[in-house]
Design a protein around this nucleic acid. Sequence first.
DNA 1: CTGAAAGCGCTTACAG
DNA 2: CTGAAAGCGCTTACAG
Lengths: 324, 324
Amino acid sequence: MATIRDIARLAGVSYSTVSKALNDSPLVKPATKQRILEIARAVNYQKNIPAAQLATGKSMVVGIVFEDIANPLFAHMAARLIDRFDENGYQAILSMAAQAGKLYRHLCVDGILYWGGAMNPSAVSELQDTAVPVVVFGADDHHHLPSVTVDRAEGIRMAIHHLVEQGHRRIGFVGRAEGVKFQAYIDGLNNLGLPHQPAWVLHCHHTWREAYTAMLQCDMGADAPTAWIGSNNQVARGALRALLHRGLRVPEDVSLVGYDDLPEMELEEVPLTTVGPALDDVVTNAVTLLMAAIRHEATVQTVRLMPKLHIRNSVAPRKERCPM
Amino acid sequence: MATIRDIARLAGVSYSTVSKALNDSPLVKPATKQRILEIARAVNYQKNIPAAQLATGKSMVVGIVFEDIANPLFAHMAARLIDRFDENGYQAILSMAAQAGKLYRHLCVDGILYWGGAMNPSAVSELQDTAVPVVVFGADDHHHLPSVTVDRAEGIRMAIHHLVEQGHRRIGFVGRAEGVKFQAYIDGLNNLGLPHQPAWVLHCHHTWREAYTAMLQCDMGADAPTAWIGSNNQVARGALRALLHRGLRVPEDVSLVGYDDLPEMELEEVPLTTVGPALDDVVTNAVTLLMAAIRHEATVQTVRLMPKLHIRNSVAPRKERCPM
DNA sequence: CTGAAAGCGCTTACAG
DNA sequence: CTGAAAGCGCTTACAG
C-alpha cells in the first residue's frame, strides 16, 4: 500500500504538501496539486483512514443499530438511511444490537442511530457510555437521548375508530400485550364504552410465526371479535394468514387492521388496511437529529410523528359472522 | 476520553507499561497489572482502536457485504455469520454492496465476505482493489476469489426429477431467465426428453412482487405447466400466492417447488417443497475460508456445497388440471 | 506556495 | 519486571 511519503518521493515534494494536495487544500499550487494527484492515482493510493482519524479526531462514519433485522421494516429503512447519511457526507455501517456497543466504541464512529421497536435498555445504555452522540428512533421516548418517536397510541386509536365507524364492537388485539400500543387498545375501548375480554387479546411476540399460531388456535366462537388489530407488520400478516387458513374470509367475515405501513402490506393476499407513520419521515428526521447532535447544534431533542390510516381491503362493515 | 498516558500518570508508571498491562502481557508484574487495570476501569478507559490499528496494522474486524438485504435469507444468515466471526475473535460489520468498497477501504477491515445471489461484478472488483482478502458466497464461482458455492444446477435437477417422479411432464420456470438455474432447467428438461415452451418461462427478478405479477398474468390454458419451479424463496412465495389467487389449488391443481430452504418456507399458506443448501453449512464454510485467507493459510480456495430436497406439501402427483 | 516539526494514541523491540 | 524511544500514516499550525 502506497503512503503519502511514497508519493512525496515520487513527486519530489514534501509529504506535507502531498497531504494538502490530497485534501484539496487551496494552499498548494494547481500545477503541483495536479501532478501529485496523478501520481496518487498511478500508484493506486488509498488513504489510511484510521491514521487520518487519529490525527483529526473524526471518522465521518456513523453506526446504525437495528434490534431486529428480520423485520421487513429494516430492509426498507436501511437503504434510505444510508442514502441520507451519504448526502450529508457520512458513511453508515450497520450492526445488530448485541454487538453494537463494543463495535462502535472500537471503530470510534462519530454518531450512532439506534432503531428499536422493543428497545433493549441495556444495549442502549451501553451505547450511551461512549462519548459519541446517539439518537434513537422507532421506539418510545428515551429519557436521556434525542429521539424521533411516533404517537403509536394515536395510531391504535385511529385503528379502533375506523373499525367502530364500520360498526364493529368486539375488537381483538394480536401482539405484545404490554407497552404503549396495548395500553392504547385498552384505553381506546374503554373510552368508547366498548367491551373487552381477556380472550380477545392474543399475546405474542412480533413475529409472523407467533401471530400465526396464536390466531390459529384462538377461540372463534360466536362471541369472538369481529375485527382485529395486529400490532405490527409481521403480526398482521401472520394473523391474516391464520384467519384465512381457518376458512374465514377477510374482510367479509372478519376485519383486520395492521400497524406499520410497509409498501408490501398492499401485496398481501388481502391488501391490508394499516395505520402507521410515513417511513420516510421517520428516516429523514432521525438523520437530521443525529447530524445536528454531531455538530453540537442539537436544538431539537425529540420529534414526534403522527401515524396515518391507510385504507385498503381488509376492513368491511360488520355483519355477524357465520360461526365456524 | 482517558488515554494510556492518563492511566500511567495515575498509576505512577510509564505508559508503555500501561499498554502492556492492558494487553495482558506476561512481562508486567501481576500486582502492577492489577493496579493499572483497576485505574483503567475507574476512569472508564476505552482503547482507541484506530490508534491501535495504526500501530499493529490489524483491526480485528471484518466486513460483510449483502447485495440484497430485502431478501429474507439475509436476516437469516447475518446473525449466524456474526456469531461465527465472534467465535474467531473478529467483529463483523454489515453493509450493502453499493457502499461497501469505499467503506471497507476507509475502515481498513481485515477481510471481506461478499454475499450475492446475482453478484454485482463492479462491486466485487472494487472490493478486490483493496489489499484485504475477500471471499464470496451464495453466488456462482468467482474466478479470482475463494468462494463457497452451491451446485445450483444440481438443485434444479433435483427439483425436476422430483416433479417427474410425480408424473409431471409440463414443467414451468419462474425467475430470472438466465444464469445457472435457468440453464439447468433447460438442460434438465432436454436430458429427460421433456417438452418446453417459451410460454412456460416467466421471467422476473427475484422479488415477491415481480413473481406474483408474472404468475398472475400468465396463460393458464389447458397447455400450461402442471408444475412450476420458483428460482428463489421470494419468487416461490410470490408464485404461490398468485396461483392461489387465481383459484388454483396447490398442490391439487398445480405443483410448485421453490429454490432456497428457509425455515419460513414451511410457514407459507401451503408449506413449500424446496430445494437448497443447508444454510448453516454455507455460513460456516464462508467464515472458515475467510479466516484462513486472513491468516494467509488459504489452502482451500473453493468449497462447493450440494443442495437437498425438502419435501413438504406443495407437490402432488400430476392430474390434468381443470381449466380455469 | 512549500517544508520541517509536532502530535493523534497506541505497540513493540530494545536496553536496563 | 520497567521504561525510553521509535514508529504506524496522517493532519495542521507555523515558519519561511
